[in-house]
């Protein structure tokens, strides 16, 4: 039963369907959000924030590349691979499994350089197994997207549910939720992640769970506080006086008023996931070896930088790609925060 489920989820068609569904759901949520008056005001504010807009466009670029790489057209090739190989003409070295420098015509070897199949085409060089570094660096965004997406799918509902419940019901519900997150918080994040992954085994799935279990806390605390503030307001008292059910008050009155906090937290959480993946991969408990992730590429630098002459292009490409995404996410989150709360920042 479990095995057949695993087969089902490991299937590339299932993956495609899930990726499309995920993107559709995200767009639907944004469209739904844009009907909210507060979001419209924020959008007006954001239009004047050039840095935030540039960051937003960059993020969309990363999302498109990552999404295209997650969409498979066969078990091993993605839409992105196909575009890169057949349309743009960037190819991996099929036979020469070795490093080659940017724009090189021969493999990177002081003793016996061999001619490349695509000389001068790899403008960021190739990796140890002859893959084009530029393509690998771009493909890293798919791992980032997958991890960030899975983590958010787990931690956002958890954080929203527990945070609003704690703030709305108070009493023993609040005490219990506070106890749970105080306990997890007491273990330093990185130690919890390491212990969790060590015990459950490496893999993207385990890592998402581990990251989700540490990320929901900040969202939960934020929403708890905000919900407590909101429930003091008159519109909630009015809803109560009119006899609205708890469910209605939470979904119709509280949730729309905290969704912007969720959005900001989500964007920041994404950048945290990308950085943490790099650190965990470096510590040896990250994504499995062979994954096209920035963490793996940076981890590889330990050996590459001690070679003579130095193999610098892989780590540089991965760092620039990662830095671009994390910086854009951070700047975009700042910009969102300003837009939703212009008075305070």
């Amino acid at each position: 039963m479990i095995e057949s489920l695993q087969h089902f989820f490991a299937n590339w068609i299932t993956q495609d369907v899930m990726v499309v569904a995920f993107f559709a759901a995200a767009i639907a949520l944004l469209v739904r959000g844009s009907r909210n008056e507060r979001w419209q005001r924020a959008w007006k504010f954001m239009k004047g924030d050039r840095l935030g807009l540039v960051a937003g466009v960059l993020i969309i670029g990363y999302l498109i590349i990552g999404g295209l790489d997650l969409l498979k057209i066969s078990p091993t090739t993605s839409v992105f691979d196909w575009l890169a190989n057949a349309v743009v003409g960037l190819q991996d070295e099929p036979t020469k499994a070795s490093y080659s420098a940017p724009f090189a015509t021969h493999t990177f070897s002081t003793a016996k350089p061999e001619p490349l199949q695509f000389p001068g085409r790899h403008f960021l060089g190739t990796t140890q197994i002859g893959k084009d570094t530029f393509i690998q660096a771009l493909k890293g965004s798919s791992t980032a997207l997958l991890l960030g997406g899975l983590t958010s799918l787990i931690y956002l509902p958890l954080g929203i549910l527990l945070g609003i419940s704690a703030g709305y019901y108070r009493g023993w519900v609040d005490d219990a939720i506070q106890y749970i997150y105080s306990t997890i918080m007491a273990i330093p994040d990185i130690l919890f992640l390491i212990a969790f992954i060590m015990v459950f085994g490496k893999g993207v799935g385990t890592m998402s769970w581990a990251l989700a279990l540490t990320s929901w806390i900040s969202l939960c605390r934020l929403l708890r506080g905000e919900t407590m503030r909101l429930t003091e307001r008159q519109f909630i008292s009015a809803a109560r006086a009119l006899g609205q059910s708890h469910w209605n008050i939470i979904t119709r009155h509280l949730l729309p008023n905290v969704m912007h906090l969720v959005l900001i937290n989500f964007v920041l959480g994404f950048s945290g996931v990308v950085l943490t993946e790099a650190i965990l991969s470096y510590l040896g408990v990250g994504t499995p070896i062979g994954t096209a992730s920035w963490g793996q590429m940076i981890d590889g630098a330990r050996g590459e930088l001690s070679r003579e002459p130095v193999v610098w292009w892989n780590v540089s490409a991965a760092t620039v790609a990662l830095f671009g995404l994390v910086l854009s996410l951070n700047l975009f989150a700042d910009s969102l925060r300003r837009a939703f709360d212009p008075k305070r920042s």
Binding site: S271, L275, I279, Y282, I298, T319, F323
Partner: peptide, 11 residues
């Protein structure tokens, strides 16, 4: 500040 914190510590 944002740029500094966007660089992975290994770098």
């Amino acid at each position: 500040c944002v740029a500094l914190m966007s660089i992975p510590p290994m770098i």
